[in-house]
Simulated scan of single mutants.
Amino acid sequence: MSEESTAFLAIYIITFLIGFPNAVLAFCSCIRKIHRKPLPIDIFMLNLAVSDLFFLTFLPLKMKEAADDMVWNMPHILCHFSDIMFFFPLYLSSLFLTAISAERYVCVAFPVTYKSPKRIIYSTLICVVTWVMFSAFAIFPYKASFLDSDEADNNTNLLSLDAKPQGCCINHTAKQLTELLSVQLSLAVVFFLLPFLICCFCYISLIRILIKCPLFKRQRKLRVTGLIVGTLLVFAISFAPYNASQIVGFIKHEIPNWHMKAFMLNTLNVCFDSIIFFCISKDMRRAIKVSAKALFSFMPI
Rank of each mutant, 00 (worst) to 15 (best):
F55L: 08
I11P: 04
D273F: 12
D273M: 12
C199F: 09
L295E: 04
I301R: 14
A292K: 13
F146S: 08
K37L: 11
N155F: 15
C169F: 14
I255F: 12
F134P: 06
N47S: 11
I43S: 02
I301W: 13
R286W: 13
K282G: 07
F27Y: 14
G167W: 01
Y114Q: 10
M45R: 09
I11F: 15
V224L: 05
H259N: 03
L161Y: 15
N171K: 13
I198D: 02
P60E: 06
R32Y: 05
L180A: 03
C107P: 06
N269P: 02
T130W: 04
M133D: 09
A152N: 07
V108F: 12
F216H: 14
R223S: 12
A152F: 13
Y122H: 13
F201Q: 09
P165L: 07
I31M: 14
T15E: 09
C107V: 09
D148C: 04
M74P: 01
R220E: 14
S101P: 05
F110Q: 14
F277E: 02
S281N: 07
E103K: 10
T225Y: 05
V112L: 11
H80I: 05
L17K: 03
K175M: 08
I209C: 05
K164W: 11
D42N: 08
S93L: 05
L197Y: 02
P117C: 06
K33N: 14
N257A: 13
I11K: 11
M45E: 07
F88A: 01
K33W: 09
T113Q: 15
V183Y: 01
K118Y: 09
